[in-house]
Every structure is written in structure tokens, then in C-alpha cells.
Design a protein around this nucleic acid. Structure first.
Length: 827
RNA sequence: GCGAGGAUGGCGGAACUGGCAGACGCGCUGGAUUUAGGAUCCAGUGGAGCAAUCCGUGGGGGUUCGAGUCCCCCUCCUCGCACCA
């Protein structure tokens, strides 16, 4: 500590001589970054008596392109909060790590013949350098890397817990196969029939895959959203994705066949209006149901549907298509024979893959009935079902024992009746599917799974973890759905440590989401070989108090992580049921042309160049000053001049042109005190509200006043000002604290200054006086002036009096400290 | 189509429970200083008008002494979801 201080003194002198009291951001920033690093200035303490604050960024995927200006947006926001909370007496955990498994590294390896481990290491080093150059106050001793065997050992351990609880299973399922990427993708990774990464076409194909039973947690994932301090739209997205709907499953007998068609409906009340049925083309009973006469037509239709990509099936097709199966079913309520159709507007993946069609009260069924001339029957009064489906409430009609009931009552009554008759049950369905968890790629966590000759599966014992990813020469996906790992014979073939049998390892790998599902837990206890996280540390630090990241993870990372967290809660590893108490999505930064930044548009801003030219402090300040954190906003390099200029003015306030301290012992004037304490009060509140742009504006206003009161700054305000500035511009604040004030200790853990409330209220206030709502004059009156006196003061104003004399005062509104308004009727 | 968010000077954006619209910054204009400046400082800057004044928060209506803010209708933009039975 003392050595560092002495060294710094020498460096400062050198710098001062060469730059003659100029704001030399490069020298200042390098000096403080080095000191923070060597002193481990931001290490979180495992002192459980202190109040804690865990503030987390969504950790980045370390791409070869390096940091883009979007990363530091949220990272600066969390850094300001972290630095502020330390000053408020919190023990702050503010870590950073790397989400480093995944496709891009592997893709790059394929193209350039460089091992993903190597490019990953290189990219991480570049990212770390760039982040450190921005002065973020991370506790670097807690850095984690999802590709580190010491880390993914625990990812595999969690998989074992899932497996043992029956939450991980293998299934032959129709999957999203992406030929271009040579792998399967989760539903969440497919957008409009294309891969989320790369935008390649995705087709349906049955394959044996590892699945995670996230559906078993659907209800908890849904209901626990209510208590989270998350943006409402994001919670809605998750609710929407989970898509829970309540209704009934109803069995329809098929006329002339010994099968029942089970349907799911949210409108059991409309059963009397079911005039036909529809099955999905891939429905497993299709072969039984379709008559010989209709078989050629149905087979052709099914084949055609199979050829369509998801994109075509959901996006492009708006005309309803379908074909009659030749068979009829019996409506259990009416006893009528109703035709069974096959149509691709019914999906195998939702409900039971078959529906009862109620064209009178469902828009899709209505459209289909119209197209194929099927009967439409009204069973809920209130609309004109010949014209359009009526989906609203109303009394039931044409519905036997339901007649006269309103829709909700009719639903309940019908379910009761179905259950009595043994023809149906109340049921809940979710849109959420089980999570397809395996990938046919090299660069991911291996499964701790062994395949035996008899086809059975066993797990690698915990003591044998991690199952290390072998080094390979080739990473090409085989294209057949085999993972590249399948080619590594001496890795695949191994001995089961439990039975001693020769077994074959699972060759699929886990998806990128696996590592990011639980990294926030490892930050708490990153070097523990005994536990994923030590229980007492977990109890202290969890949950994450503030989590900031991009909205693109609304239903991917954030849903998966919540799922794993709940499983770990059930396993007893974590003490809370939800990992992220408060969540914020930062907005996107667009290019200077107002378009999304992209290499092809050539509008990408390189943070390194900006930092070089304006400095990390000006860069941090600018990113926060651009606008609200959550807003999408365009980059303007010119804007850096504003924040850089502000820092120069701050510097000049503390250091004169000769490079000597401009801090003086004079008493601060009232204006300075009022400006400072007003600012301090606002900045503190703004940080709590994550309103950083207005906090910076307030500091700019404050500095404008202090500069007018200058030259130099009174000692009484100098240090408090720097403490207030430090979360935003830590390098300059530390530098001025050390040089202009001669301090030796860092501002990192110092206390936030007390606001002196006396300076928040001024003796006089300006009160506008309106006549008929238009401001005519502004009065300077004592702040505590009463209503009557204020009105008198307004009437005494010469200009006001003249105007009042021109008419009759019909009404006077006087709000002390705010406004006076005379309503005047002309005579 | 459904859901959510948004529209304020030349630009990014301020405005707590309705109370001086345009804080702060960029840009621009003029000036000072400088060999020079993409440096610094001072002044100005919503629009129209010499002025008093008038007009101004996407458009139209309403509530109110008073509306960027509240209510109704419409237009446009962004982001989700998209045959979910």
C-alpha cells in the first residue's frame, strides 16, 4: 500500500511536467487500472455480518470480434451501482466471467483449422484486456470460464442431479434439425423456422435426443414470476412462452373403428357446437382413421405437409387447407356423427394433435368450415355465427343441459358432466415443451453418461467428474447427426468404473445454455472443489440483487436458469427459489446512421479507438449520458466531446495550468453549497433508480456553478465531489483525490457523502403568475409564503394589476410555492 | 391479427404526485484569445415577428383555473408472439 503510494507520487510528477496540468486520460487510466489490479481493490469479502449486494452482468460470449459498444452499456451501469453500493456500506459482489462454449468458436475452428480452446483463450484475453481498460470494478479473482474442466465438472454434476430426479431422459422425438449447422436446436433457438444464430433453415426430423423435463416445472416457473422485480413485458414473454391454458380433454369415439380420438379444448362449453373434427397430418392414429378411399389423398396431403418447413407452415400459409379422412366420430354430447378432417392448421406438438372444431365460436374453425362448406352451429348467443366466429361471453343455446348458462358456468358444468360420463377430464396444457438438451457438436460439455452393450444407460459417478472433452484433430459434424466426438474412439470406448464393463460414452454435448444456467452461483465460491457453492456463502450472497442484460435472453437463458435454479433448490443446493430478484434489460445502441450496428453496414464503433481518443471515463460517461439505460438509441461520436469536456472542466477545477492543486481553504459560497448538495441528493437518488443520464446532467450543472465560483474548488466540497463522481468516472476521481488532495487511500470503499438538507431548500422560490393559464410574470417570493400573502404579492405586481383591471376576476387558484392563476372574464 | 412500448427543437434527450415545456449535452451563430486549432473562455440558440405578441410536445376531440402528463378516437414507428385448440 505505502509502496504503491510512493510510486504513484513519482509518476504523477513526471506526468505533470510533460503535460503541464492537462487532463491526460491515458496516463491517469493506466495508472489506476494497474493499482486496482495489484491491490485487488474490489475483492468481495466473505464477511457475512455485512449487508450484501450482488450485482451481476450477463457474462459475455468472448467472440473474436472483441467488445462492441453494447457490452459496456450494461457493464458501466452495473459498475456505477457496484461502486455506489460500496460507498453505502454494502459488501458488494461484482464478478465477471466467460460463456465460452458454443458454435461460433467451433465454426471458426472449422474455417481456420485452429482449436476452439486456443481461439477461446485468445478471445478471453482480449475481452479481459478491453474490460479492464474500462476500469470496471470486478473482483477478478472470481472470474469463471464455462469451458474450464473445473467449472464444467459442476455443470455435469447438475446434469446428474437432473438425471437422478428423472428430469433428464432420452427420447426419439421430431427435432429442429439445422442442416447448415449440423445440429439440432431447441425450440427457443428457432425463430420463424430459422436458426436463431445464423438464420439457417431448420427442418423437422425424428432423432434420439437428451431432453430435460422443464415442463414438470411449468407451474412454478409461471407462478413465481409474480413476485419478481422484472420488466412486466419480459414476464409476459415468459408467461406467453409457457402458455398455460386450462380446459378439458374429451374423448370422441370413431365410428366403425375401435379407437378414441382425444382432443384438448379450452372451450368444453361449446361441445354441442362441435360439428367436425380435425387431426394433425402426423397424428399417430391417422392410419387407422383414414378410409381406403381417402388414403391416397390423405397420404399426399401428409407428405406435402412434411415437406413444408416450419416457416412455410406457420408464416406463409394463410389459406386453410385440409382433406376429409372419410371417417366420422361421435360427438359425445349430441350423439351426432361428425366428419373427421386432416389439416395442417392443427399441430401435433400442441395438445393432443387433434381438435373438436367449433366453427361458430373459433375463428380458425370458422375459416376452415367456410372453406370446405362444413356446418356452423351457434351455441353461445351474442354474435352472428354465419358472419364470423363469436368468441365472447353470452348465454348458451342449442346445448341441452347447458342452455341459459354463461360461458364460465357452462365450462364447469360440462367438465362435471364429462367426468360423470367418463368421456372427459379437466386438463391443463402448456405450450412449453421439454427442453431439447443435446447437440451434435464438439465444443460443449460432454454428458456424464455411459452406454452399455445391452442398451442400458448409466451415469459416471460424481467422484469421476469431470468427463473431460478430448482433444481432437477434426471438429466437422458428420452430417448424419453423429457428434464429432463419436470419431474419437479411444475416448468413446471406456470402462464403467462401477461395473467394470466396457462401455461407450455419450457423444452428444450439452447446449451453450448449460454453462450459463448456473454461473451466478459459481461466482459466489469459484474455487471450491468440494461444493458447487458452499452453503453458507450461498445463503449469504443469493439471490442476485440486480441483474442486467439483453432482452434477447427473455425466454432462453432466463427461463433455463430459473428452471435449473428451482431444481437446485429442490436438491438443497440453493436456499432461494428464484435466482434474480431484480432484472433490467439495457437498450440497444444503434449505429450513427440509426441502423443496427453490423459489419456489413460498416457502422460498427470500436470501443478501443474511442477509449484511446477520449479515455475510458469519458466513454463510460457518454454511454450513460446517451439516454435512459433501457432505451434504444443511436451512437454519436460527437457526443463524447461533451462528456470529455466535462471531465476536462472537472480536472481544471482541481488542478491549475501549472499542474498544481487548485483546492483552496476558502469557505464555499451559498450558491456552491446549494448546487453541490442539490446535485448530491439527485445523483444518489438517480443511481438507485438507474437514471444515470440525469445524474450526469446534474453533475454537469453542478460543475458549471462551481466553475463560476472558481478558480479552484473549496476544500470542503472537493473530496465529497470526487466521491460522488467516482462511480461514473473512477480514474479521474481517484487521480484528483490522490494528486490535488494528496490522499493515499483509494476512493473504492469510502463513504458516500451526507447530503446537508439545509442546502436543499432555498429561502426564495420563483412562482409563475398566470392569467387565464398564460404566464404573465414570475415572482420571487419567500419559500414559506402563505396562500393569502402570495395572492397579494401577485396582485401587487404592476403588470398583473393592469391586466386584472381589464376584466372581472372570476376565480383565483393559488398553490403556495407553485403557481398563481387568475381566471379573468373580459368586461 | 394479438400483446407491450414509443412519437417532445437541427440531433440525443429532460420535465417527481397535472403547475414557467425544451434541464444537460451535441450541433449551430456571434465574440474574446491564439501562429494555428477538431484547444480554451464568454454570449446566444423551439418557430414566426422590428416589436408588443402569437404559435408550439404525432393528428383530432374531451376533462380541468391549468394537460407533454389524465380520458376517448386516429396515424406512424420499435419490439415480442404468431393457426397454442
Amino acid at each position: 500500500m505505502r509502496r504503491a503510494t510512493a510510486d504513484r507520487g513519482i509518476e504523477v510528477t513526471t506526468s505533470t511536467e510533460s503535460k503541464q496540468g492537462m487532463y491526460d486520460h491515458q496516463a491517469i487510466e493506466a495508472r489506476w487500472q494497474a493499482r486496482w489490479k495489484s491491490e485487488k481493490a474490489f475483492a468481495a469479502k466473505d464477511d457475512f455480518t455485512l449487508p450484501k449486494y450482488y450485482v451481476l452482468d450477463m457474462f459475455p460470449y468472448p467472440s473474436g470480434a472483441g467488445l462492441h459498444v453494447g457490452h459496456p452499456l450494461s457493464y458501466t451501469a452495473t459498475d456505477i451501482v457496484a461502486r455506489y453500493k460500496r460507498k453505502r456500506g454494502f459488501n458488494v459482489l461484482h464478478p465477471m466471467g466467460w460463456d465460452a462454449f458454443g458454435l461460433p468458436a467451433e465454426q471458426y475452428a472449422l474455417e481456420h483449422g485452429i482449436h476452439p480452446a486456443l481461439t477461446t483463450r485468445r478471445n478471453i484475453e482480449n475481452f479481459r484486456r478491453q474490460l479492464q481498460a474500462l476500469g470496471f470494478s470486478y473482483d477478478w479473482d472470481r472470474e469463471v470460464n464455462t469451458t474450464d474442466p473445473g467449472y464444467y465438472r459442476w455443470t455435469q454434476w447438475i446434469f446428474l442431479q437432473l438425471y437422478e430426479r428423472g428430469l433428464a431422459y432420452q427420447a426419439e422425438v421430431p427435432v429442429n434439425w439445422c442442416p447448415a449447422l449440423g445440429t439440432v436446436l431447441a425450440n427457443e433457438e428457432v425463430v420463424d423456422g430459422r436458426s436463431e444464430r445464423g438464420g439457417h433453415p431448420v427442418i423437422r426430423r425424428p432423432m434420439k435426443q437428451w431432453m430435460l423435463r422443464i415442463t414438470a416445472y411449468a407451474d412454478r416457473l409461471l407462478s413465481d414470476l409474480d413476485d419478481l422485480e422484472w420488466p412486466e413485458h419480459l414476464k409476459d414473454q415468459q408467461r406467453n412462452w409457457i402458455g398455460r391454458s386450462t380446459g378439458a380433454e374429451i374423448d370422441f369415439a370413431v365410428d366403425g373403428r375401435d379407437v378414441v380420438l382425444r382432443v384438448f379444448t379450452t372451450r368444453p362449453d361449446t361441445l354441442f357446437g362441435a360439428t367436425y373434427m380435425v387431426i394433425a397430418p402426423e397424428h399417430p392414429e391417422a392410419a387407422t382413421i383414414v378410409t381406403d378411399a381417402q388414403r391416397p389423398a390423405c397420404d399426399a396431403y401428409r407428405d406435402q405437409a412434411a415437406l413444408k418447413s416450419d416457416l412455410e407452415r406457420t408464416q406463409l400459409v394463410k389459406e386453410k387447407t385440409g382433406v376429409f379422412t372419410g371417417r366420422h366420430a361421435i360427438n359425445p354430447a349430441t350423439g351426432e356423427r361428425i366428419p373427421i378432417w386432416m389439416a395442417d392448421y392443427v399441430m401435433l406438438g400442441y395438445g393432443t394433435g387433434a381438435i373438436m372444431a367449433v366453427p361458430g365460436h373459433d375463428e380458425r374453425d370458422h375459416e376452415f368450415a367456410r372453406a370446405f362448406g362444413l356446418p356452423i352451429r351457434e351455441v353461445v348467443a351474442g354474435g352472428d355465427v354465419e358472419q364470423e366466429a363469436y368468441t365472447g361471453d353470452g348465454p348458451l343455446v342449442n346445448s341441452g343441459f347447458l342452455d341459459g348458462l354463461a360461458v364460465p358456468a357452462a365450462k364447469a358444468r360440462m367438465i362435471e358432466w364429462l367426468e360423470q360420463q367418463g368421456k372427459g377430464v379437466a386438463a391443463v396444457h402448456t405450450k412449453l415443451r421439454d427442453w431439447l438438451f443435446s447437440r451434435q457438436r464438439y465444443w460443449g460439455e460432454p454428458f456424464p453418461i455411459l452406454h452399455h452393450d445391452d442398451g442400458s444407460v448409466s451415469t459416471v459417478p460424481e467422484s469421476e467428474l469431470p468427463v473431460r472433452l478430448p482433444d481432437v484433430e477434426r471438429y466437422e459434424p458428420s452430417g448424419t447427426g453423429e457428434s464429432p466426438l463419436a470419431l474419437v474412439e479411444d475416448w468413446v470406448s471406456t470402462v464403467d468404473p462401477v461395473s467394470g464393463e466396457r462401455v461407450r460414452r455419450e457423444t452428444h454435448t450439452m447446449p451453450q445454455w448449460a454453462g450459463s444456467c448456473w454461473y451466478y452461483l459459481r461466482f459466489i465460491d469459484p474455487h471450491d472443489d468440494e461444493h458447487l457453492v458452499a452453503p453458507e456463502k450461498e445463503r449469504y450472497w443469493m439471490p442476485v440483487d440486480l441483474y442486467i442484460g439483453g432482452a434477447e435472453h427473455a425466454v432462453l437463458h432466463l427461463l433455463y436458469a430459473r428452471f435449473w435454479h428451482k431444481v437446485l433448490h429442490d436438491v438443497g443446493v440453493v436456499s432461494c427459489s428464484e435466482p434474480f430478484r431484480k432484472l433490467v434489460n439495457q437498450g440497444m445502441i444503434l449505429g450513427e446512421d440509426g441502423e443496427k450496428m453490423s459489419k456489413s453496414r460498416g457502422n460498427v464503433i470500436n470501443p478501443d479507438e474511442v477509449v484511446q481518443r477520449f479515455g475510458a471515463d469519458a466513454f463510460r460517461l457518454y454511454e450513460m449520458f446517451m439516454g435512459p439505460l433501457t432505451a434504444t438509441k443511436p451512437w454519436q461520436t460527437n457526443g463524447l466531446k461533451g462528456t470529455h469536456g466535462f471531465l476536462k472542466r472537472v480536472h481544471r477545477l482541481f488542478v491549475d495550468e501549472q499542474g498544481t492543486s487548485a483546492v483552496h481553504d476558502g469557505e464555499p459560497g451559498d450558491d456552491a453549497l446549494r448546487a453541490f448538495h442539490g446535485c448530491l441528493d439527485k445523483v444518489g437518488g438517480d443511481i438507485e433508480r438507474l437514471s444515470f443520464n440525469t445524474a450526469i446532467a446534474a453533475m454537469m450543472e453542478c460543475i458549471n456553478v462551481l466553475v463560476k465560483e472558481g478558480p479552484g474548488i473549496p476544500r470542503a466540497l472537493a473530496r465529497p465531489f470526487l466521491v460522488m463522481l467516482e462511480p461514473f468516472a473512477p480514474h479521474l476521481a481517484e487521480e484528483l483525490h490522490a494528486t490535488a488532495l494528496g490522499a493515499s487511500e483509494s476512493l473504492a470503499w469510502t463513504s458516500w457523502p451526507e447530503v446537508d438538507a439545509r442546502w436543499l431548500v432555498s429561502e426564495t422560490v420563483k412562482v409563475p403568475v398566470q392569467i387565464n393559464g398564460k404566464v404573465r410574470t414570475v415572482l420571487d417570493v419567500p419559500a414559506d409564503i402563505g396562500q393569502a400573502e402570495l395572492e397579494r404579492a401577485a396582485r401587487d405586481d404592476a403588470g398583473v394589476a393592469t391586466l386584472l383591471a381589464q376584466g372581472d376576476v372570476a376565480k383565483v387558484v393559488v398553490v403556495p410555492g407553485r403557481i398563481v392563476n387568475f381566471v379573468v372574464r373580459p368586461r
